[in-house]
C-alpha cells in the first residue's frame, strides 16, 4: 500500500493519501464489527428466557433422609433432607481434602443468612459436563462418598455435594434460596 503512494521524489514518508487509506480502513473495520455485533448478540438468551420465575417448594413432605428433584430454569434442583449422620460426615471432612474447599455450613445457608444443616439445596448439574448426577432417588448409586455420583465421567460428590473425586472441578452449585417459613422455600 505504501509503495503505491511513495511520492515521486522517492521518500517513503507517509502522505495524506496513506493517512486517508489507514483511516478509511480503520473506520471500515469498526463499522464491520458494529454490524456483526447484533448478529452475535442475537444468539444470547431472549427476554422471555431471561424473565426467570422463581419457584416456591413445600419441603414438608420430604422425610428425613429423602430427597426430591424440582425443575428450575430448565435445570434440576436437588433438595435433600439430610440425616444427622450425613451432616456429621460432611462437617468432619478436613478442608485440605477438598478440590474446591467450602465448609458444609456455607452450603446450607439461605439468603437471609440462616443456616439449616438439614436442608441441602443444590443445582443438580455436574460441574464437569452438565449431566444430572445419580443419588437423589432411593436405590441409585450414591458413589464412594455417599452423596452423588455422575455416571457420565465418574465424578463423585459427598453428602454436602462437594466434589471429591473425578474430573469435575467444582462443587455442585448452590442456587439463591430463602426459607419463607420452616416448610416453604423460594428458589431463585
Amino acid at each position: 500500500m505504501a509503495s503505491s503512494s511513495v511520492p515521486a521524489d522517492g521518500h517513503g514518508d507517509p502522505t495524506r493519501r496513506d493517512f486517508l487509506m489507514v483511516a478509511t480502513g480503520a473506520l471500515g473495520a469498526v463499522g464491520a464489527a458494529a454490524v456483526a455485533w447484533p448478529f452475535i448478540n442475537n444468539l444470547n438468551p431472549a427476554a422471555d428466557t431471561l424473565a426467570l420465575a422463581s419457584i416456591e417448594v413445600n419441603v414438608k413432605p420430604i422425610e428425613l433422609g429423602q430427597a426430591i428433584t424440582v425443575s428450575w430454569r430448565g435445570k434440576p434442583v436437588f433438595i435433600r433432607h439430610r440425616t444427622a449422620e450425613n451432616i456429621k460426615e460432611a462437617v468432619a471432612v478436613p478442608m485440605s481434602e477438598l478440590p474446591d474447599p467450602q465448609t458444609d455450613a456455607s452450603r446450607v445457608t439461605d439468603t437471609a443468612k440462616k443456616v439449616r444443616p438439614e436442608w441441602l439445596i443444590m443445582i443438580g448439574v455436574c460441574t464437569h459436563l452438565g449431566c444430572v448426577p445419580l443419588g437423589n432417588k432411593p436405590g441409585q448409586d450414591k458413589g464412594p462418598y455417599g452423596g452423588w455420583y455422575c455416571p457420565c465421567h465418574g465424578s463423585a460428590y459427598d453428602t454436602s455435594g462437594r466434589i471429591r473425586k473425578g474430573p469435575a472441578p467444582l462443587n455442585l452449585a448452590i442456587p439463591q434460596y430463602l426459607f419463607l417459613s420452616d416448610s416453604l422455600v423460594r428458589i431463585g
Partner: peptide, 17 residues
C-alpha cells in the same frame, strides 16, 4: 455456553439454531 444455548440449558432456542 449460555450464548451457544440461547438460554440456561439446552432448550428450544438451541434446537432451532
Amino acid at each position: 455456553v449460555t450464548w451457544l444455548w440461547g438460554g440456561f440449558s439446552i432448550g428450544n432456542p438451541t434446537l432451532n439454531r
